[in-house]
Design a protein around this nucleic acid. Structure first.
Lengths: 130, 130
DNA sequence: TTGTTATTACGAAAATCTTCGTATATATTT
DNA sequence: AAATATATACGAAGATTTTCGTAATAACAA
C-alpha cells in the first residue's frame, strides 16, 4: 500500500460515509445522504461538503456521470480497516494485537462460523512460528 | 459501567496521555510531559491544558498533593479499551468482532503465548454457544 | 422560453483540538 | 526579605471538523 495513506485518519463523519460506500458501492451524494438519513438527520450540503473534502484529501475519487458525480473510496475496505486497527493497536493497546483480540472477543458475540475461521488463522500463525 | 462514559471518545492526544498514566500509574503533569517528550517535543503547558480539559470532561480526576496535582484516569484501562474496540467495531467493521479479530491477527505478529490465550477464549465461547 | 428542480460550488459560523505565552501563586534558596 | 524555581490558571491563535445557507449551473418540463 502506498505510504501516502499511512497517515489517513478518517474522522467519524468520514467513516460513516465510507461505510455507506462499502455497502452500496460507488454512489452519488444524494444516495449516501439518503442512507445516512435513515439513521440521523443531516442536510444534503453537509454530506456533500464532507465528500468534497474527502476527495481533496484523496480518500475518495469521483467521476462525472451525466449531471452528478459518482464517488468511490480510493482504498479498499480491508486496507482502511487495516490502517484503523493498526492505529488502535498503537494508540491504546501498546501494539499488542493479542490484547486487542481478547478484548474484542470477550466483549462481543461472535458467530460459530467466525470462531472457526479465527481458529484456522491461529493454526496458520502457529505453524509459521515453529 | 456508567452510561455516562458511553460517548467518551478520547482524542489522539488524550489517548497518548492515558497511555502514560496506564503505564506509570497516577502522575503529575510534569511526569507525563517528560514521558511524552522522550518521543516528541511538546510544551509543558500544552500537556497541562489537555489534562485540565480531560479533567473537565471527566476522563481524569485529580487530587492535590502538596503543591502539585496528581492525575488518575477515571476509567480502568480495560474499560477504555473496551469502549474503543466497540467504537471501531461499530464504525468500521459493521459490528462483526470476528472480522476485526481476523484483521488484527492477520496484520500483526502475535506471540505464541497470546495465541494460546486466544484459543482458550475461543474454547470458552464455543462452550457457551452449545 | 421561462420557470422548476437537482446538483455542485462557495463561504462562513460554531465547535473542538492543539499549541503555547503570560500571569499568578506558592515554595525554596540565598 | 528578595530572588529563583515550579506549578496552575487563563486566554488566545491557528487548524480542523461539522453544519448549513446561498448562489451558480445544468437539465427538464410546461
Amino acid at each position: 500500500m502506498s505510504s501516502f495513506f499511512k497517515n489517513m485518519q478518517p474522522t467519524d463523519s468520514e467513516l460513516e460515509i465510507l461505510q455507506v460506500l462499502w455497502e452500496n458501492g460507488p454512489s452519488t451524494v444524494r444516495s449516501v445522504n439518503d442512507r445516512i438519513n435513515e439513521r440521523r438527520s443531516v442536510g444534503y450540503t453537509t454530506t456533500l461538503k464532507i465528500m468534497q473534502i474527502m476527495t481533496e484529501k484523496g480518500i475518495l475519487s469521483r467521476r462525472k456521470k451525466e449531471r452528478t458525480h459518482i464517488y468511490t473510496p480510493v482504498l479498499k475496505k480491508s486496507e482502511t480497516q487495516s490502517l484503523l486497527v493498526d492505529k488502535l493497536l498503537k494508540n491504546a493497546f501498546g501494539g499488542s494485537a493479542g490484547k486487542l483480540v481478547m478484548q474484542a472477543l470477550g466483549n462481543n458475540k461472535t458467530s460459530a462460523e467466525e470462531l472457526r475461521q479465527i481458529k484456522d488463522i491461529i493454526k496458520n500463525l502457529e505453524k509459521k512460528q515453529e
